[in-house]
């Protein structure tokens, strides 16, 4: 039972938001000690596992090129592309963004973010679509649209990234299973991540569709009123 102290240290450390690296190291060292390893054995287990899993940090070699592309307006270009989306409803704006975000993540393009894309682009576009379609979009509706806009970033990001063969998540799976004596290839893990990615997209689409339904039920459509007005004019 005492051996679980490492799990407890991780739990408490993460909940208290202590330094992550230090918490993990302490949990490992303490677990090793109560598990009967001496300090040298612990250090060498730690060291050899770290050397063996260096491939998990190979993304370092991609940082210079991503940095240069950002210097020359990679994000600005992506923002321009998204601005040009022509979508008629709030839900459709979010469907298209989730799709783009998920595909980008699957190609290891880190082009998203609540600060960079949701606040300045996606939320205003989603709100704008509602305001084009409906008479008066109330505070409650805007609050809900905010929630959905933020969620669209998370859905696309989380469930797309592992489709990339050298993503952090895939390499974590390969590395952790490897340390437990199970060999798997990154490509097999990446391919196995596709079904969940598709399900996540389908479910998010359903959720956005339901949002559109809810908005049209609650709010007065501009088009309907327009028709009523013209009809009245006809009677005159």
């Amino acid at each position: 039972m005492l051996k679980l102290i490492g799990v407890l240290i991780i739990l408490i450390g993460f909940i208290l938001k202590l330094d992550t690296i230090a918490v993990v190291l302490i949990a490992g060292i303490v677990t090793g000690l109560v598990g009967g390893l001496d300090f040298t054995e612990i250090l060498s287990t730690l060291g050899s596992a770290f050397i063996k899993t260096r491939y998990m940090s190979l993304f370092l070699v991609t940082l210079p090129v991503i940095g240069i592309l950002e210097r020359y307006g990679l994000r600005e270009r992506a923002a321009d592309l998204i601005k040009n989306i022509k979508a008629v409803t709030t839900g459709k704006v979010l469907i298209i963004y989730t799709l783009i975000r998920e595909l980008a993540a699957a190609f290891s393009l880190r082009l998203g973010g609540h600060v960079q894309f949701i606040r300045p682009l996606i939320f205003p576009m989603a709100q704008g679509a509602a305001e084009v379609n409906y008479e008066k979009v109330g505070e409650n509706e805007i609050e809900e649209i905010k929630g959905y806009a933020a969620a669209s970033e998370n859905y696309g990001n989380f469930f797309g990234q592992n489709v990339f063969v050298a993503s952090g998540g895939v390499l974590l799976i390969v590395g952790t299973l490897g340390e437990l004596g199970i060999e798997v290839a990154p490509l097999a893990v990446a391919k196995a991540s596709i079904p969940a990615a598709i399900c996540a997209f389908i479910y998010s689409t359903i959720q956005y569709y339901l949002l559109d339904k809810k908005l049209s039920k609650r709010l007065d459509s501009k088009k309907v009123n327009y028709k009523k007005e013209t009809a009245n004019e006809g009677v005159k």
Binding site: K3, L25, G28, A49, T53, G168, G175, T176
Partner: peptide, 20 residues
């Protein structure tokens, strides 16, 4: 944070060695 995945794998190795 960039070394976190590697440290977690190393933690797994220690858990394994200790029989967690």
């Amino acid at each position: 944070a960039s070394i976190l995945p590697q440290l977690l794998a190393a933690l797994g190795a220690l858990f394994n060695a200790a029989g967690v």
